[in-house]
Amino acid sequence: MKVMIRKTATGHSAYVAKKDLEELIVEMENPALWGGKVTLANGWQLELPAMAADTPLPITVEARKL
Rank of each mutant, 00 (worst) to 15 (best):
M1D: 05
M1E: 08
V3L: 07
V3F: 02
V3G: 00
M4D: 07
M4W: 03
R6H: 08
R6W: 08
K7W: 08
K7Q: 10
A9Y: 08
T10H: 13
H12T: 08
H12D: 04
A14N: 02
A14C: 11
Y15D: 03
Y15T: 11
Y15F: 11
Y15H: 09
V16S: 06
V16P: 02
A17N: 09
K18N: 14
K18I: 15
K18T: 15
K18Y: 15
K19E: 15
D20W: 08
D20R: 11
D20H: 12
L21R: 11
L21E: 07
E23L: 15
E23T: 13
L24Q: 13
L24H: 11
I25C: 01
V26F: 04
V26G: 03
E27L: 10
E29Y: 06
N30I: 05
N30E: 08
N30Y: 11
N30D: 07
P31K: 12
P31H: 09
L33W: 05
L33D: 03
W34T: 04
W34K: 01
G35N: 06
G35S: 04
G36E: 04
G36S: 04
G36Q: 04
G36W: 05
T39I: 11
T39E: 06
L40Y: 01
L40N: 02
A41W: 04
A41Y: 05
N42G: 07
G43M: 02
W44K: 00
W44Q: 04
Q45D: 06
Q45T: 13
E47I: 14
E47M: 14
P49I: 05
P49M: 05
P49Y: 05
A50K: 12
A50H: 13
M51W: 05
A52N: 09
A53G: 09
A53C: 07
D54L: 07
T55S: 06
T55L: 05
T55Q: 07
T55C: 05
P56N: 08
P56C: 07
L57G: 02
L57T: 05
L57Q: 01
P58E: 03
P58K: 02
I59C: 11
I59E: 02
T60A: 07
T60L: 11
V61A: 02
V61P: 01
V61T: 04
A63Y: 05
A63G: 06
A63E: 03
A63R: 00
R64C: 10
R64P: 05
K65G: 09
K65V: 15
L66V: 14
L66N: 05
L66E: 04
L66G: 04
L66Q: 06
